[in-house]
């Protein structure tokens, strides 16, 4: 596994997708969620992925997070062709490389806020309660460590999710509609956390419907019917 991460150090683009296609079988025939997507994301870049429902945004993020496999095409992350990895190597790669922030938070309901963070540490290497408490404090939830997800508000759950995503210091953060279920106040808190993470050098790939959230990113990629319809830099110059 060390070789997987070492290879990332020397490469230029952190993520390179080439000819990415993902088809799902359905009764009506094959549904193409992604169609020949080619995309490069630089280290430290914040990319927003936008598009209407069913355009393939979440599929793209899931494939980037190695939670799904493309039907065709290649995915190179940190210099590693993830298609070449065995299941075990893929599990390890995911733990080392990627942090997830989900729209539905996806916290384990029977573990407290602190334990949800410890869980990520546990699967990564070993647990360190002090570090987990610091991570929780960094998202403003130091006093909520022993609360179960059901005892936290949506915004608080999302912040736990962010702390959990960051605890193992992954180079890539994948956020699927991170503010999709939050009110304005919590949305602002989460936005600020993401800004901080970006300033700290994290690479962020974020799916969003919200133009305000997208405006925070360095680049916006628009998907339509599984294809990249447009790409815009933060200076609003249309690239495609």
């Amino acid at each position: 596994m060390a070789t997987i991460l070492q290879s990332a150090v020397g490469s230029e683009a952190l993520i390179h997708l080439h000819g990415l296609t993902r088809e799902y079988a359905s009764r009506a025939g094959a549904v193409r969620a992604l169609d020949q997507v080619t995309l490069t994301i630089e280290r430290g870049e914040w990319v927003a992925v936008m598009g209407p429902s069913g355009s393939g945004k979440s599929t793209l993020v899931n494939i980037l997070g190695c939670l799904d496999q493309p039907t065709h095409g290649s995915v190179r992350i940190a210099g590693t062709d993830v298609h070449q990895l065995s299941r075990q190597e893929l599990d390890r790669f995911r733990a080392e490389t990627i942090g997830f922030i989900f729209q539905q938070f996806h916290l384990i309901p029977y573990l407290t806020a602190l334990e949800n963070i410890l869980l990520a540490q546990y699967f990564h290497s070993m647990t360190d309660e002090d570090e987990a408490r610091r991570a929780l404090a960094s998202v403003g939830l130091g006093d909520r460590a022993t609360h179960l997800p059901s005892q936290l508000s949506g915004g608080e759950q999302q912040r736990v999710c962010i702390a959990r995503a960051l605890i193992n210091q992954p180079p890539i953060l994948l956020a699927d509609e991170p503010t999709g279920n939050l009110d304005a106040a919590n949305q602002e808190i989460v936005q600020e956390h993401l800004r901080t993470l970006h300033r700290a050098g994290h690479t962020i790939v974020m799916v969003t419907h919200d133009p305000e959230m997208a405006s925070l990113a360095d680049r916006t990629v628009e998907l339509h019917h599984g294809r990249i319809a447009a790409e815009r830099r933060a200076d609003l110059t249309a690239q495609k």
Binding site: L67, R87, D91, R92, F100, I108, L119, H124, N168
Partner: peptide
């Protein structure tokens, strides 16, 4: 199965 998927997303091995 959702717990299973979350743990996988967090990097757990199949074995774990």
């Amino acid at each position: 199965r959702r717990d299973f998927a979350i743990m996988k997303a967090l990097g757990s091995t199949q074995h774990q």
